[in-house]
Each structure stands twice: as C-alpha cells, then as structure tokens.
C-alpha cells in the first residue's frame, strides 16, 4: 500500500502532466463509456488504454499485478448482470433462479468489458500521479478549499502507517488470546475489535498531526505555495487524448451497431 502512494523514480511522460488534466481526461472517458453497455465501445477503450500504459511508466507485469483483482471483479459483475438482466432472445441456461439468454449474455459480457474499461484508466491515472501533486492541483487550480485538501493529504500520508498498525494490532491481540481463527462469527467479532483498536490510534494520531499542522501556522485563510501547479502544452494533449478515445469508442460502437444506451 505504501508503494501505491509514492512514485519514486518514475520519469514517464504522463507523470509530468497536470493531475487535473489527467483526471479530466480519465473522467471523460469513464462517463462516455458509462452511457452504453456494449462490447465494442468497451473493447475499443481497453485497447486504447493498454496502448497508453507505457506512457504512464507501467510495465505489463506491474499492470497485471494491479489489474487482476479488477478483472475478477469485472467478471463477477458481468456474471451477475447476465443472470439477473431481463432475458432477450434464446434462453441458454435456465436452472432455478438462474437464467441466461443470448441477450443477457451479451449484456453481461459488455458489462464486464465496460467495467474493466472504466477501472483501467483509474489505475493509469494513479500510477502516474503523485497524491501531493494532485492536492496541489486541486487547491491551486480547481480552487477547492486548501485546508480540506491539505488536511486530507496529510492524513493520507498515514495510510501506510495505519496498514502496518493494523498488522501490529492483530498480533498484539493474538498475544492477548483473541484469535483470528474460528467460525465466521468469531472472526467477525475479532475483526470488529481490531478495527476499533485501529480507530483509536487513528484519532490519536490525527489529533497530534493536527496540532503539528496548526503549530506550523496551518488553518488561516491565506497561504503561499512553494510549488506552483501549472498547465503546459502536454495537458492540452492529455485532454485531447481523452476526447479522442471517448469519441472513438462511441463511433466504433455506433458504427458496429452495438451501441446500447443504458436508459433504454
């Protein structure tokens, strides 16, 4: 988790783009993809996204490492859509509560690909965006209130620490006789106790961090920025790229006749 929050040593092209521009591009593609459930628009997007990954400094192996849980999630989403969606066309499977027809299978497949096509660019975005730069952009360019942005950023820095503390609390509780084994109810109880322990530490740490920040003059209405968040020509290309991918998916789907608007 800690690795997810730093991007030490990456010099990929997209790391230099303004986080806000990247976010707009990714969000745009996601919104357009969300409008239709069809395999053509989703596949088009996936192909384009995969082609862009080298620009974000992601190798195929790293990508696989981060993406496989999403593929599983998308597959499950596709399956549930296939069995729950209204049947159209020939029924392929009908066992008890499960029924899959040609129509619902196509829908399920489209849904799975769409889910993946929406999830992948978020990974792309986060691999080439440092949270600090994102916060700078949000506060300076998007003009979100800086106290909230920087407060969240500072808290975000403690994520790695919280994850380690979670593990430590688990061990500390085992040393008290609270096992994480047993039946689901016992495990649930153990997890709730462990969560409570983590919450106490979270509030303590956050309160101390708030004192540190306040003692450094944080909390006033005005401040200067040591680093300016700025736009460059690259950002124009990034947004343009997002537009192009979004339009390409629509054109491909409409051209292939598969475009299926979600609110039919």
């Amino acid at each position: 988790m800690r690795e997810a929050l730093t991007m030490q040593g990456s010099h990929a092209v997209l790391t230099r783009a303004n986080p806000l521009a990247k976010f707009v591009a990714v969000f745009l593609v996601s919104m357009v993809l969300a409008l239709s459930i069809d395999w053509v628009s989703a596949s088009t997007a996936i192909v384009a996204e995969l082609a862009l990954f080298p620009l974000a400094g992601l190798t195929l192996r790293l990508l696989w490492h981060r993406a496989w849980p999403l593929i599983i999630a998308a597959a499950i989403g596709g399956w549930s859509t296939a069995i729950v969606a209204a049947d159209r066309g020939a029924v392929l499977l009908d066992v008890g509560i499960w029924s899959i027809s040609e129509g619902s299978l196509e829908l399920g497949l489209g849904f799975m690909l769409r889910g993946l096509a929406i999830a992948l660019p978020a990974i792309l975005l986060m691999t080439c965006t440092d949270p600090t730069d994102l916060a700078d952009a949000l506060a300076q360019k998007a003009r979100l209130p800086h106290r909230f942005v920087l407060g969240s950023l500072a808290a975000m820095r403690l994520v790695g620490l919280m994850a380690e503390e979670w593990q430590t609390i688990g061990m500390a509780r085992r040393a008290r006789g609270v096992g994480s084994h047993g039946n689901p109810l016992q495990r649930l109880k153990a997890t709730l106790g462990q969560s409570f322990g983590l919450l106490v530490q979270a509030v303590r740490r956050a309160s101390r961090l708030a004192v540190t920040m306040e003692a450094r003059g944080f909390g006033g209405g005005q401040r200067t920025w040591a680093r300016e968040s700025s736009y460059s020509l690259l950002d124009v290309w990034v947004v343009l790229g997002g537009l192009i991918i979004a339009s390409a998916t629509v054109l491909a789907a409409v051209g292939a006749g598969t475009w299926t608007f979600v609110w039919r």
Binding site: T132, L153, A154, R216, G219, R223, A226, R227
Partner: peptide
C-alpha cells in the same frame, strides 16, 4: 506533515 522532505520543511513557511 507531507510526503516529501522539501515540501514538509516548506509547509510552515507557506502557511
């Protein structure tokens, strides 16, 4: 407060 050494030192002065 922040995740990079330079930013962290600058934080108070910025405020």
């Amino acid at each position: 407060v922040l995740s990079r050494v330079g930013d962290d030192v600058a934080f108070g002065a910025e405020n």
